[in-house]
């Protein structure tokens, strides 16, 4: 369970995030949808305590990120915008490194690694150095790394970025699996179709503000648009005229 209350963050004159609030529940997939530069990455970075919000509060499973950042990070699995694998280590060594930083013992670590490598279908690449990995292989490795400690909450910044249709579909199945296990999954995207296909709930942000927060179906009904893509465009436009 991730709760976000009135987050603010600016970089100099740029107000990246202004008063963002939403919550992502366990056993649900929540999509953070917004155009480029809307403030998605910045919001997520405050969730996993890489950045400190100027105002507002983040709660993960009831823990306040400002007071207990380590506890929050322990409860989170994170796939950042930058995947950042270690090229001179194999995929498995990359995963193991993070597992050890989470304090897993060697038996648990081996079991988790094997399970994730099987679930993500990466047996063929597991013992190769990640130098030269394709986009898809990199994302898989980074996701396995984020899940190695079996977190109850998962934050993914544009997880399907750069993936082909097959890989995207596999990713979708994988995320459904995580939802079925009762985890809280929060991901960001700027692609409407993806959000529709995946989410139980959509939080639309534009210019650092939440402009809609509902189930995909409700969004369409609210705007009266024929397709979700139209609904998305309408919502963004409306927020722009309001801001002007």
């Amino acid at each position: 369970m991730i709760e976000v209350q009135n987050l603010h963050k600016s970089f100099g004159a740029v107000k990246a995030v202004e008063d963002v609030s939403f919550s992502a529940r366990d056993g649900e997939i929540t999509g953070l949808l917004g155009p480029n530069g809307a403030g998605k990455t910045t919001t997520l970075r405050m969730l996993y305590t890489l950045m400190r919000p100027e105002r507002g509060r983040v709660l993960v499973d009831g823990r306040d990120a400002a007071l207990d950042p380590l506890g929050v990070r322990r409860a989170l699995g994170v796939l950042p915008d930058a995947r950042g694998l270690y090229k001179r280590l194999t995929a498995r060594e990359n995963i193991e490194y993070f597992g050890r930083l989470h304090g897993l013992d060697e038996t648990t670590l081996r079991r988790r690694c094997d399970a994730l490598i099987a679930a993500l279908d990466m047996a063929a690449i597991a013992d190769r150095r990640t130098e030269g990995f394709s986009q898809g292989e990199r994302v898989k490795t980074a996701i396995a790394r984020a899940l190695v400690h079996d977190p109850g909450n998962l934050i993914l910044d544009e997880p399907t970025n750069g993936l082909d249709v097959m890989a995207t579909r596999a990713m979708r199945e994988f995320l459904f699996g995580l939802r079925a296990e009762g985890r809280c999954v929060l991901f960001s995207s700027h692609i409407m179709q993806e959000v529709v296909a995946l989410c139980d709930r959509v939080v639309v942000i534009a210019h650092g503000r939440v402009v809609a927060d509902a189930a995909p179906q409700t969004l369409r009904e609210q705007t009266g648009a024929a397709s979700l893509e139209d609904a998305f465009v309408q919502i963004i436009r409306r927020s722009e005229t309001r801001a002007a």
């Binding site: 996993y48 305590t49 890489l50 380590l70 506890g71 990070r73 322990r74 989170l76 994170v78 796939l79 950042p80 915008d81 930058a82 995947r83 950042g84 694998l85 270690y86 993070f98 930083l101 989470h102 304090g103 980074a142 790394r145 984020a146």
Partner: peptide, 9 residues
Amino acid sequence: SLEPLFANP
């Protein structure tokens, strides 16, 4: 890779 590294507890 510093960003994912710092996301560890």
